[in-house]
Design a protein around this nucleic acid. Structure first.
Lengths: 238, 238
DNA sequence: ATCGTTGATCTGAGATCGCAGATTGCAGTT
DNA sequence: AACTGCAATCTGCGATCTCAGATCAACGAT
C-alpha cells in the first residue's frame, strides 16, 4: 500500500480497461437475455455458445454458472442448462416483488433527484415516447428499460438497483414473447406522464403509485401470454 | 421423453441425491459466511480453500465466482477476492431493503399461515428463547436465523426468500463481528413475542411492523460496530 | 540506513483433456 | 412393424497445466 495521499487531478488512473473474458461473456449474455434474444426454455450449452462467441468454453461456462445462481438459468434433470420458464405463479411473485422494490426505489429517487437528474429522465421519457410512436417493439422495450433504470439509479442505492435488474432479467424473455402493441404503449405512456408530473412536484407517494400502476398494467398483458401452469409436467421446446 | 403416464406409487424416483461438488462447496461456503466464520475484508483464495476442503481448485473457483456475483465477495484491484466490507451507507441501504422485503414476506406469510406452520414457528421461537437465555451468541444467531427463515418461507414465495437470504449473507460477517449481548437478546425477544401474538391474531400489518422493529433495533447495534466510512481509503486487515 | 531492484511465490484466469451421464439415431432382432 | 440394444455424440463437471499480474522478502548499491 503506497502513500497515495491525493490522486493527481487530470490523471485518470486505471481507466485502461482490463476486463476479464468471463465478465464480458457474462455481460453479453445478460443483455442478450434481457432483450429477449433467447426464448424461455431454450437450452444454452457452454460449448455451443463458446463457438458462437469465438471464445473458449471456460469463460462461457463460468458465465452460465453465474446466470444459474441468479435464477435465470435452470438445471434440467439431464444436467443441461435452460432458460427458466416462468409459470404464472412465478410471474405473479416477481410482479409483486417489483411493486415493492421498484416502488421503493422510485420513491426514494424522487426525494434525491436533482434538476440535472430530472432533465436526463425527461429526455429518456421523450425518447420513449418517440420509440412508442415508431412502433418498433425492440426499440420501445429498450427505451422503456433505460427510462426505468435511470429513475431507479437516482435512488443512490446500487444494491437495490442490482436486485431490480435481476428481476428484469428473469422476466426479459417472457416480455419479449408478448410483443407490446400500440394500445399497450399508449396506456403505458399515460403512466409515464404521471410519473414525470409527480417527479416535478417531488411527490414521492404519487411517483410510487404511478410506477406500480405502470408495472401492473404491463404485467397483465405479459401474464396472459404465459404458458399455463403445467398440470401434466411436460416439455417439448427446441 | 418416455410415456410415463403415472408415477408408480411407493417408488420414489430420483431421490438418490447426486449433488455437484461445486454446489456442495458453494453451500458450504455460504453457510460458513452466514455464520460469520470469515471476517469482513478477509481474503478467500481458491487454492487455499481447496486445500482446506480437500477438493481441487476448480469447484472452489466456481463457487467463489458465484459468491462474487451475489455481491458477497469483491474483486480487489490486485484481482484477489475478499469478503465485502460493508460501509455504514451500504449497511443502511441493506437495512432499508430488508424493511421492505422482509416486512412484505412476513405480512404475506401471515395471510398464508396454517396452524401447522404456526406451531412450527412457535417451536422455533421457544428454541430461540432458550438460546437467548443460554447466552451462547453463535447458538442464538443460528436460532434467530432459523426463526426468521421459517416465517418467510410460509409466504410461499421462494424467489423472495432467496433475495432475503442473499441480504442476510451480506450482513452475516458484520453481524458476527458485533456479538449480541444479553440486553440486545432481551429487547429482541419482545419483538419476537409481538410477532407471535400478531401471527396468532392473523394481523398482517402488525406482524410487518414488529418485523421492521426487530430488524431496526438489531441493526442499530450492528451499525455502531461498523468501521466508519473511509474518508482516506485504506485497508489493513488480515 | 535508505532506496531501488530483483526473484520467489502467491493470486485469478484461461485452455485443454478426460470422465460419466444422458440423448439420439441407427441398426438388428423378434 | 415394433421393440431392443449398441454406438456416436452431446452435455456439464472436474483436474491439471500454463500464464500474466501482484505482493513480498531478501539483497545490493548508494
Amino acid at each position: 500500500m503506497q502513500d497515495v495521499s491525493e490522486p493527481h487531478p487530470g490523471l485518470n488512473g486505471g481507466n485502461l480497461q482490463r476486463e476479464s473474458l468471463q465478465q464480458q461473456v457474462f455481460d453479453n449474455l445478460r443483455s442478450a437475455i434481457m432483450s429477449g434474444v433467447f426464448r424461455p426454455g431454450e437450452v444454452l450449452s457452454s460449448r455451443g455458445l463458446a463457438q458462437q462467441l469465438g471464445v473458449s468454453a471456460m469463460p462461457v461456462r463460468e458465465a452460465l454458472t453465474r446466470l444459474t445462481t441468479e435464477g435465470v438459468l435452470q438445471n434440467t434433470p439431464s444436467r443441461t442448462l435452460r432458460l427458466r420458464v416462468l409459470s404464472p405463479s412465478d410471474f405473479d411473485e416477481i410482479t409483486a416483488i417489483r411493486f415493492e422494490i421498484e416502488g421503493m426505489a422510485a420513491e426514494r429517487a424522487c426525494g434525491a433527484m436533482t434538476t440535472a437528474d430530472l432533465a436526463e429522465i425527461r429526455a429518456l421519457n421523450d425518447a420513449l415516447t418517440a420509440a412508442a410512436s415508431s412502433g418498433d417493439a425492440d426499440h420501445y422495450l429498450k427505451a422503456n428499460a433505460d427510462y426505468h433504470a435511470a429513475i431507479y439509479r437516482v435512488s443512490g442505492w446500487p444494491l437495490l438497483v442490482g436486485m431490480i435488474e435481476r428481476l428484469w432479467l428473469m422476466v426479459g424473455p417472457s416480455i419479449r414473447m408478448s410483443v407490446p402493441d400500440r394500445a399497450h404503449m399508449a396506456t403505458s405512456q399515460e403512466f409515464h406522464d404521471q410519473i414525470m408530473t409527480a417527479l416535478d412536484a417531488r411527490d414521492g407517494k404519487t411517483v410510487r403509485a404511478a410506477i406500480v400502476d405502470d408495472i401492473s398494467t404491463a404485467a397483465r398483458d405479459i401474464r396472459a401470454s404465459l404458458a399455463p401452469e403445467a398440470a401434466h409436467p411436460q416439455m417439448k421446446e427446441e
